[in-house]
Amino acid sequence: MTRAAVSSVAALWWREIVRFVRQPSRLVGAFAQPLLFWVLLGGGFSASFRAPGTPADVGALQYFYPGIIALVLLFTAIFATIAVVEDRKAGFLQGVLVAPIPRASIVLGQALGGTTLALVQGILFLILAPLAGIPLTLTSVAMVTVVLVGVAFALTSLGLVIAWRMESTQGFHAIMNLILMPIWLLSGAFFPVAGAPGWLGWVMRLNPLTYGMAALRRALYVAAPTRIGAVPPLGISLLATLAFALATFAAATAVARRTS
């Protein structure tokens, strides 16, 4: 690794943060919409929804809560992705592409930038946990943070796989609705695997985000594991999330190497 390969990661990471801070609308977009989803869906389903295998007092608002944290991460990843497409259009990325650094450095800087933003917003959302009826402890916050880093990195890298292939943001809505939103919907964020019909259950078991979601629930309810219902164990979930993060990062780097 050359000096430039390392310092460029830091510079690109730092740039993502500065840009975000200077565009307050992005914060609103990535934070307010999930919040609205949570209040409206959680409120609306409170009488009719109950996740199988959870105690009776875990209502829709509480069940959806970890799922909405994942949605915050997803939205931040999507915004980071759009930023990369815009960088390509504006010419900034061209200047980065002709710099004497490996493509992996560029992707790592972008992924860490997106991860940091997602993490900060996810943790901000965590403050609302008591409102959802989930008490926070030092242990649970620490564990959730670790899980969020993994999930945020994986989702941002997944976004980058898409962003490096796209010439414009125009086709992005289709990608978002057909790939990214279903990944979230079928992760156990919105309804548990246990309650889904057989074929859908298998799709959910194959969805890597299902394990991120499971790890998040396990971390959040570390003091009260009986309240989660049937989700994969923590160890497997963390391993799967790590694998998800590494695979998406490798894929994003591979796509970036082919891009000229």
Binding site: A4, Q94, G95
Partner: peptide, 25 residues
């Protein structure tokens, strides 16, 4: 120097240059 502007409009002049310096180590 490309024809398309390669500077980040949201960064200051100095920040843009610092970012470039990092890319070249």
């Amino acid at each position: 120097v490309f024809q398309h502007p390669g500077l980040d409009p949201k960064l200051t002049v100095e920040e843009n240059l610092r970012c470039h310096a990092a890319l070249y180590g």
